[in-house]
């Protein structure tokens, strides 16, 4: 296994990887949320934020998540604050889950995640449609929701490996 010395600069960079990934995913033109494949897309920031908020990762500053949301809105062209609201709501629900859970269960987390992304996407859709008069494709939301839910398991596995490498 990879062993990292804790005073090493590489280790420090490694601990900031989740935030780094979050920023790259919102700043990059190639967005996993809007892949140019018909009936396939998933919301990577939701998965990342939910996982690290549940795991109470020390480097995962909510203010940085909030700023990432603002950047995402600017890049995508959504009204400023919409993504920040979504990301902060994910953090709130994840924090609630962490506080309420005594014995963590992956399957329960998984379905809880489905519930919260459905709720947040519904809020998103409603705000954009009713308040900002955006013409939106509801099928996109359904497909995106479904694949985000499906990919929770493999991505959780990868993130677990990442945390394991840090803790070792």
């Amino acid at each position: 296994m990879i062993s990292l010395k804790k005073n090493n600069w590489f280790y420090k960079l490694y601990t900031w990887l989740p935030i780094l990934f979050l920023y790259i995913s919102v700043l990059n033109e190639f967005d996993l949320n809007y892949i140019n494949i018909e009936y396939f897309s998933f919301n990577f920031p939701f998965l990342l934020i939910f996982y690290f908020a549940v795991k109470e990762y020390s480097r995962f500053d909510f203010l940085l998540v909030f700023i990432a949301g603002l950047i995402n809105d600017t890049v995508v062209g959504l009204p400023l604050g919409i993504s920040s609201l979504s990301y902060i709501l994910v953090c709130i629900f994840a924090s609630y889950l962490r506080n309420i859970t005594i014995r963590p269960n992956l399957i329960k987390d998984w379905f809880y995640f489905l519930f919260i992304i459905s709720l947040i996407n519904s809020i998103n859709y409603s705000v954009l449609f009713f308040f900002f008069s955006f013409e939106l494709d509801i099928m996109f939301y359904a497909v995106n929701n479904f694949f985000t839910f499906l990919l929770y398991m493999p991505i959780t596995y990868l993130f677990d490996k990442y945390l394991q490498a840090i803790n070792d």
Partner: peptide, 18 residues
């Protein structure tokens, strides 16, 4: 730990920005 703002504050700021 290491959080500068509570989530409620950030939530209100988001709504305010919108």
């Amino acid at each position: 730990t290491k959080q500068k703002f509570s989530l409620l504050t950030l939530l209100f700021i988001s709504i305010l920005i919108i």
